[in-house]
Amino acid sequence: MTNSGNTDNSDKTTPTSGDLAVGELSKRTGVTTATINYYVRIGVLPPPRKTSQTRALYPADFENRINKIKELQAAGLNLKGIKQVVNGDPSSPLASAMPVDRTNSSTAQSTTSGPISISDFLSQSGLDDDLYDNLIAAGLIRRPRTGPDGAPAHDRRDLSAARAFARLTSAGIDYPLLERHTEYNPLSKAEALFLAEHLSSATRVTPTTQPVNLVAAFDAIRRYLRALQLDEAYPDWRNPQS
């Protein structure tokens, strides 16, 4: 297949000022060079800086851009919607509807969207080996799947949950209480089925009513209603503890 305008990986010229050749960008993000060039052609990524007829250099921030694209794809957004999120106004309805993981943002930015080895998973989540094993055994974190290299690996959703468990334990919450989350699996399933009912009932498709945005809206409603109940059960939860 001919890739019009694609870069030539055989060119060994060293990029300057942090720019990346397409081969290096592909290696860092786990996205093929053909896919990167496709993103450029359809406008999901801006054009790179051409240095010759067959070679271009990509700014270093393209690594974060591509990882964001992968994250949005994993959340269920199509490329048309992703184009609006990545290149659009951050204050647009579509962008503001996207869920944001604010947990340890500096670490999250440095974490790739691809498979995460178990050793990296433990270091990035803050879980110790025993707690990790217990959470896996209880089904509170999914067992690692086989990554592209054949080694066991987790994904970013697993990592987000693991960080949440680590934060709870850092507050002095013991594992037996954490394990009781398994008691609420029927509630989680019921809520998932209720969410699926919302998604299947949606009849108007717009950039702001993509499934991923409806999930974010549903989650916002559930958090709000849960907070109202918490206000009654534990009124001081909003007050800082000394």
Rank of each mutant, 00 (worst) to 15 (best):
K50S: 09
Q210V: 07
N6A: 06
S4D: 11
Y175G: 00
E63Y: 01
L193T: 10
S188E: 12
R28L: 15
I221A: 12
T33M: 13
S4P: 09
D89I: 08
G150E: 13
P144V: 07
L195D: 10
D155M: 06
P115S: 15
T103I: 11
T208L: 08
N64W: 09
D11P: 09
P90N: 11
V212Y: 00
R143S: 14
Y175E: 01
F62I: 08
T54V: 15
A21D: 05
H181L: 10
H198K: 10
I136W: 02
S242N: 07
E71I: 09
S117E: 15
A56G: 02
Y224E: 10
R204T: 13
K189Y: 10
T203G: 02
Q210M: 06
R226M: 09
A138S: 12
Q241I: 10
V205P: 05
G88Q: 01
L230D: 04
I136C: 09
Q241C: 11
S200Q: 14
T206D: 07
L77E: 03
D219Y: 06
S92E: 05
S125Y: 01
S91W: 07
Y224D: 14
K50T: 12
N6M: 05
K50E: 09
A166Y: 04
R65E: 13
T112E: 14
M1R: 05
D219G: 00
L77F: 04
R142E: 10
Q109A: 15
G139Y: 03
P48W: 01
K83D: 06
